[in-house]
């Protein structure tokens, strides 16, 4: 009996030491969206960061802003650094779930100006562009290149797929209608501009076979022949091309989006989080990321560190950046709800 007790007490002691030990060692709780994206983050940043600093990284998924808000409300914040797109970041800022990132915390002077944000460190740039089936539009023949081509169903017949959410689609619709990329948000700020965009959606609607909901769908639909043309993300098209699916994409018109890493308010390991943000934004680390997924660095200093073959696959080359329109997350935070309602309404009929 006493032996048993002794055993138990030893066990308890061991357990206590282990738990204290792990509490003392620095940790970082990181949450992203799973899949190939999070794999790339793990290989290029999380693993080397952990090795360099000795900080243990715990990964989680689905950092929905709604859940972060619920965690803060119930004082059960479990995450330190989360990854969000521009729209979710802006939403989170409005709800006060992210901490402001000052230059003292993370120096972002070298970051591409269009990508900077007060509440997030830009992690990568990805483009929405036209991808198409090489079976339908083979090399050497007429191929769709611009958003106007995407909307031109006489010149390029066949079914299309576009995103079920309005951001990037509305921008593309206006550019297809002849609006200069630099003027898109000026036009959208007026009711007439919104009507014009909605008319474009109405026009293309009968030719859209699939309104896609996740980034893998455009390539799946092109591969299965369900559609011949897609508005989708460059990284996904690239993954399809790399798996020998007969598709191609055109960089002539792009809407760029920036991915952000944000610090959750009340993060349990705030210091580790800030350390990680500083690590991830170094040009060297930025250059590393595109080895694993075809998304571009957020600092031009990283370009020099990437070989030419790889740079061809990325949205961040100087000339591509020059022609690109960056998604205005502030605009979408202000008008997203109303535009989504209109967008859904136009397509529901």
């Amino acid at each position: 009996m006493s032996k048993k007790l002794q055993k138990i007490s030893t066990l308890l002691c061991v357990a206590a030491t282990i738990s204290v030990g792990s509490a003392q060692g620095a940790e970082l709780n990181f949450a992203s969206w799973g899949g190939a994206y999070q794999n790339a983050i793990r290989e290029s940043w999380l693993k080397p960061f952990s090795k360099e600093t000795g900080i243990k990284v715990n990964e989680d998924t689905e950092p929905q802003v709604a859940k972060i808000r619920a965690m803060i409300d119930t004082q059960t914040v479990a995450w330190d650094v989360v990854t969000e797109n521009g729209a979710r970041l802006a939403k989170g800022v409005k709800l006060g779930v992210f901490e402001k990132i000052t230059p003292d915390m993370v120096n972002q002077d070298h970051v591409i100006p269009g990508a900077r944000h007060d509440y997030g460190v830009p992690s990568e740039i990805f483009s929405t562009l036209v991808g198409y089936s090489l079976k339908e539009f083979p090399n050497g023949k007429l191929q769709p290149k611009t958003f106007a081509d995407f909307w031109n169903v006489e010149k390029f017949p066949g079914k299309r797929t576009m995103q079920d959410e309005p951001s990037t689609v509305i921008e593309a619709a206006l550019i297809a209608d002849g609006v200069a990329p630099t003027d898109v948000y000026k036009v959208l700020a007026t009711p007439a501009g919104v009507d014009r965009a909605m008319k474009q959606i109405e026009k293309i609607k009968p030719y859209v076979a699939v309104w896609w909901k996740n980034g893998a769908e455009p390539v799946n639909a092109l591969a299965s022949g369900e559609v011949v043309m897609a508005l989708g993300w460059n990284g996904r098209f690239q993954a399809g091309i790399d798996s020998k699916i007969p598709i191609k994409m055109s960089w002539d018109n792009v809407v760029n989006q920036v991915g952000y890493f944000a610090l959750v308010k009340g993060a349990p390991n705030r210091d580790s989080g800030i350390k990680f943000l500083n690590y991830m934004i170094q040009p060297k680390a930025q250059a590393e990321f595109s080895k694993y997924i075809a998304y571009g660095p957020t600092t031009e200093k990283a370009i020099a560190l990437i070989d030419e073959a790889r740079i061809e696959r990325l949205p961040s080359t100087p000339e591509r950046l020059k022609a690109a329109l960056f998604l205005d997350s502030e605009f979408w935070e202000q008008n997203g709800a109303t535009l989504t309602e209109r967008y859904n309404q136009v397509r529901a009929r």
């Binding site: 969206w33 799973g34 689905e62 893998a216």
Partner: peptide, 9 residues
């Protein structure tokens, strides 16, 4: 869901 919602695993 994590493997399929945002990606295709």
């Amino acid at each position: 869901y994590e493997g399929i919602a945002h990606d295709f695993d």
